[in-house]
């Protein structure tokens, strides 16, 4: 368990570092890593001790927790949509900047 927490901490610090950079592409990568790390944290928060898949086998003990998977799936879909949106926005910004710099030169 401490190892998982350490991994999460390292990933979060990488993403915060990237978010604080000035380059907007790096900011995008920061949000990407942050959102994936959060999925990972949700997985840990649902406890990892149990081995058997839920709803498949009949023995009712030692089943894995199905709820974090549902939450992660939702979070991934939303994060994917927002990051796709952000990248198109970045493309537009870079395009406008390029046109402006061409006008100046």
């Amino acid at each position: 368990m401490p190892l998982f927490a350490l991994c999460a901490a390292i990933l979060i610090s990488i993403s915060v570092f990237l978010l604080l950079q000035e380059n907007i592409i790096r900011k995008l990568f920061g949000t990407l890593i942050l959102s994936s790390t959060l999925s990972y944290i949700i997985l840990i928060c649902g406890r990892l001790n149990n081995k058997a898949p839920a709803f498949v086998s009949n023995n009712s003990h030692n089943l894995s927790n199905p709820l974090p998977q549902a939450m992660i799936l939702t979070a991934i879909v939303i994060a994917f949509a927002l990051i796709a949106y952000l990248s198109t926005l970045i493309r537009q910004i870079l395009f406008i900047n390029m046109k402006n710099s061409r006008k100046e030169s």
Binding site: L38, I41, I42
Partner: peptide, 9 residues
């Protein structure tokens, strides 16, 4: 989302 995960934990 992070705080929700921690509240869930």
């Amino acid at each position: 989302l992070l705080s929700i995960a921690l509240i869930y934990a």
